[in-house]
């Protein structure tokens, strides 16, 4: 009863004054992680520069699609073995491999290899259960996959939905570190498949360009892991990602000013023209590093 009364007082205070909007020219109190803006556009511009920026990592869904557009052939040799799912013990191992299996699933799907897809969905269900993500990889989802197995777009929708729901579920429940492991696993696995194809199959300039462009994702991934490694639990992965990022940041960039143009369909194209130069030995160095990270965390 006493607690109820106290809560009522707190609620009244909160509603009456504690949460009133600040006067013009004062900062608004927003949730942690967000800077407030003011009515004045100029002041807000200043805030935009100083504000915290939330980093995102390209999803395996998009990177698989980019890989397919380079014209390479599907190669099952580079995929993870679904039977390995029982090997992972720690939360970190499970999360990083969940990301890797999502990347494998995306790769199979964009190349129309649906027979592999089902086994990967079952793996995701097992790892999802072990990571308390039971509401995402349910038997209903697996049933949806079975029902739509030959419909590439439907499967892509299901993968995309599962990926963002897992990520947001982990973030909402203060499990950002686990989410970071999932993102890292997905990114490394996609890079592993691309770099293995680039170095073992016939030369493909477009593919090599796509690998070089991961320079940006490498920088963001390095930053994300650094931010989430608050307790040192991610030290080993952080060290490896830092070394990989250094290899990427050594790639030379040639930049030209921002231009605007319109294509035949009327879609505008914006931004700087940037060319990233990667030598054969740099590609080999990146390939070797990615392979060793995969062996360490995802084999």
């Amino acid at each position: 009863m006493r607690i109820t009364s106290i809560l009522s007082i707190v609620l009244s205070l909160y509603l009456l004054g504690g949460c009133s909007p600040p006067k013009q020219g004062e900062e608004a109190d927003g949730p942690a992680g967000y800077d407030s803006s003011l009515l004045d556009e100029e002041v807000m511009e200043k805030y935009e520069k100083a504000r915290q920026v939330f980093i995102t990592i390209p999803s395996p869904i998009e990177t698989s699609s980019l890989l397919q557009k380079t014209g390479v052939q599907f190669n099952a040799e580079y995929l993870k073995n679904a039977d390995d799912v029982s090997k992972y013990e720690t939360t970190g191992e499970k999360a990083v491999n969940l990301g890797a299996f999502i990347a494998n699933l995306s790769y199979c799907n964009v190349f129309g290899q649906q027979d592999h897809s089902l086994s990967y969905f079952n793996v995701l269900r097992i790892l999802g259960d072990e990571l308390d993500l039971t509401s995402i990889f349910t038997s209903k989802v697996v049933q949806r996959v079975e029902d739509n197995i030959n419909d590439q777009d439907s499967i892509l929708n299901i993968i995309s939905e599962a990926y963002w729901t897992a990520k947001s579920n982990l973030e909402e429940n203060e499990r950002q570190q686990v989410a970071a492991y999932v993102l890292a696993g997905g990114w490394i696995e996609g890079l592993y498949i691309a770099s293995q194809i680039a170095t073992n199959d016939k030369a493909n300039e477009l593919l090599e360009g796509r690998i070089a462009e991961q320079k940006y994702a490498a920088r963001n991934m390095n930053e994300l892991i650094r931010l989430q490694n608050t307790d040192g639990a991610m030290d080993e992965l952080a060290r490896e990602i830092t070394e990989l990022n250094e290899l990427f940041q050594a790639l030379e960039e040639q930049r030209e000013p921002v231009t605007y143009s319109m294509d035949k369909k009327g879609i505008i194209s914006v931004g700087k023209n940037i060319t990233i130069v990667m030598t054969e030995s740099q590609l080999q160095g990146i390939t070797n590093k990615v392979k060793s990270i995969r062996q360490k965390f995802m084999s």
Binding site: P21, G30, S36, S37, L39, E48, V53
Partner: peptide, 8 residues
Amino acid sequence: EGDSATLR
């Protein structure tokens, strides 16, 4: 209201 957020 009054907030902003940035994503990279």
